[in-house]
Design a binder for these strands. Sequence first.
DNA 1: ATTGAAACTTTGTTGAA
DNA 2: TTCAACAAAGTTTCAAT
Lengths: 152, 152
Amino acid sequence: MTTPEIEATDRKILQLLAEDGRMSYTDLGKATGLSTSAVHQRVKRLEQRDLITGYGATVNYAAIGVPLTAFVAVTPLDPSQPDDCPERVADLNEVEACWSIAGAESYMLKVRVATPEALEELLGRIRSVANVGTRTTIAMYTYYENRPTLKH
Amino acid sequence: MTTPEIEATDRKILQLLAEDGRMSYTDLGKATGLSTSAVHQRVKRLEQRDLITGYGATVNYAAIGVPLTAFVAVTPLDPSQPDDCPERVADLNEVEACWSIAGAESYMLKVRVATPEALEELLGRIRSVANVGTRTTIAMYTYYENRPTLKH
DNA sequence: ATTGAAACTTTGTTGAA
DNA sequence: TTCAACAAAGTTTCAAT
């Protein structure tokens, strides 16, 4: 938003790090035609400008026994109350993402749980902690997730 | 799915790497009470078992001029055709994720674009490349995304 | 943006519990 | 089988240019 124009080299570095967050500065340098310390400097600048907000391992949740992903569309029940649903549901660690949406409902949550029972129980906690109604769409299979969308 | 029971130390390593994918083996060792080479070995095993499927930088898409996220619920139009929508839309790099869902529609896509015009154009490409109908929900603001859901 | 040097990290090998 | 200790190779991070 602040700097929509990103220079080509910085864009390339963003793309490479989005695809492999553990790539070494040496290899980033080779891939961009810069010296190791020049890329290092640029990466630090990308972090400081908040264009890179962090690094994470991609965990195979299905394989570790948390196979259920669901989308929960959320409607606040009392319009006179302060609308702080995103902060309230942030306390629930099953909630992986929260967006405000255009349409019939106010927010969309993405949640991850181990079992249908755990989902039902979580929906109860979401409704009571945020005083909202919920409409849930269960994802039965994840083909892919978090693919980098930078290749243009 | 194959190994739903993950040992406590491996779980801790997964959690730490989900939160900071560039954490060094030295620091992982300090955080888990193991030697550098012992964590190193465990991380390689987590990668081999596909419990860690990759590492990525978290890119602030809004800040680099791609502020629009949308969810596209997709319905195949011709039930006699092979249903290969996930593979077909995988070619469109604006498509970040694809889930098969329970409910009125068959799939849910998550897409990222720069402008409403780019979204409209992308929806056209999705419909023609996969021979599907679409129902789109625009995310106007991202409160948070990809929070690790491993703290239990 | 680069070079070069010191500090630190990674990753293979070896052997102990 | 899992861990620790070591050591060589590679990487990071600075200051100076």
